[in-house]
Design a protein around this nucleic acid. Structure first.
Lengths: 208, 208
DNA sequence: CGGGTAATTATACATTTGCATAATTACGCA
DNA sequence: TGCGTAATTATGCAAATGTATAATTACCCG
């Protein structure tokens, strides 16, 4: 004779957030196959059936988790940007440093990204989220590049191409840093990123 | 009354190779979760029970498949180098163009890479293979960068830093190209890569 | 040519998984 | 206060999965 689980009423936002957090935790720890409906529910302190109440299907939950993860990364890179002086070069330097530092550069984050990356080619919903978040980050980078170029009196028509290349550079750096944490020191990564962008944009970005 | 499947005797090498090929095909098409014992057996034209005869467990089979994939990629990228011209700048250009073109930039390759990437943080053996192949490719790139810099009379002491950044740039480009095949044209990718490297190395790489 | 052995198939089984449905509980509003 | 409704739990189920085991087949060596 088992006792019924205590009924706890939490809002929709809370529950959705908890379920997404539990999903990301499990995927980070044990890969996508570890994120079963029951495991997610247990981790979120909830009953399996509740998942169905908030997400029509498990794929929906996973897509939502991916969305949350990616926009979180963009926000983390843009963090502390408001506090800075208006100098476009300094702003870009801080942005780059953020993009190759924890929590962005973090084994857990990279594992999560790899897991979702593997779904992107096959799942239309995932692909849509990926495209959206990718372009969002790239546009942000492109705007900062444009401002930096204009501030130093350079033509800005190549800004988009440079943003694509710069975005790829940052992607590659944080992937390798996350996959091989011991291969680079944090300062080394920042220095590489800022130096590479200085050459890409043909201007002198300040170290941070 | 079903008829018994025709018994076909094949050697151990053949069967192991077939099972590994079937596993990689399935992972590339449908992700790791598509590589079930039954699906692998069907794809390999074999009965599920036979897998157990060659691999003690499914994990063993998948590990063997990843090993095969990685060494295959290494061999493929090393093979390309012989055909390149003697001029260091032209060599580098062709190398870059190859690195962002099929079959390297290929949804199947990227999907397989993402699948293994997801195991790297959790599996020591996978991590060792990853580190080895990463450093191998980076050293190759660094040698070509050194030659290009020397050929144009530039100092070469920053070659390693530039190789790290350049490698990251290529990684990022082919990942995005594989994930969003419609976002870039092949020519666009080549042009972006060569232009970015021209700026990184402060020299004029020829278009190919 | 005949038997032993490895290769291959067939069957069975316990477990896990995602999902559906019905029962139960708490909250808000009249 | 009472009732409707959304939130949450409990239970069930069919399908899929990995693996174990026994039966069957082809090859090889004497």
């Amino acid at each position: 004779m088992t006792t019924r689980r205590r009924f706890v009423h939490a809002g929709a936002q809370t529950r959705r957030a908890d379920l997404i957090a539990a999903t990301l935790d499990l995927i980070a720890e044990g890969g996508p196959q570890a994120a079963t409906v029951r495991a997610i529910a247990t981790r979120a302190g909830v009953t399996p059936g509740l998942i169905r109440h908030y997400f029509a299907t498990k794929e929906d939950l996973i897509a939502a988790a991916h969305q949350h993860l990616m926009s979180g990364l963009t926000e983390a890179s843009a963090e502390r940007l408001e506090d800075l002086p208006d100098d476009p070069l300094a702003r870009l330097s801080v942005f780059l440093a953020n993009a190759v530092s924890p929590p962005v550069t973090d084994p857990r984050t990279v594992a999560l990204w790899a897991a979702s990356m593997q779904l992107v080619p096959r799942d239309a919903k995932m692909r849509a989220v990926h495209r959206e978040t990718y372009l969002e980050f790239r546009d942000l980078l492109q705007r900062m590049i444009t401002e930096a170029l204009a501030h130093s009196g350079q033509p800005v028509e190549q800004a988009q191409t440079l943003a694509i290349a710069g975005n790829a550079l940052l992607d590659g750096l944080w992937i390798e840093a996350g996959a091989l944490p011991d291969a680079f020191t944090p300062d080394q990564l920042k220095s590489i990123a800022i130096n590479a962008f200085s050459r890409l944009l043909k201007l002198e970005l300040p170290e941070v």
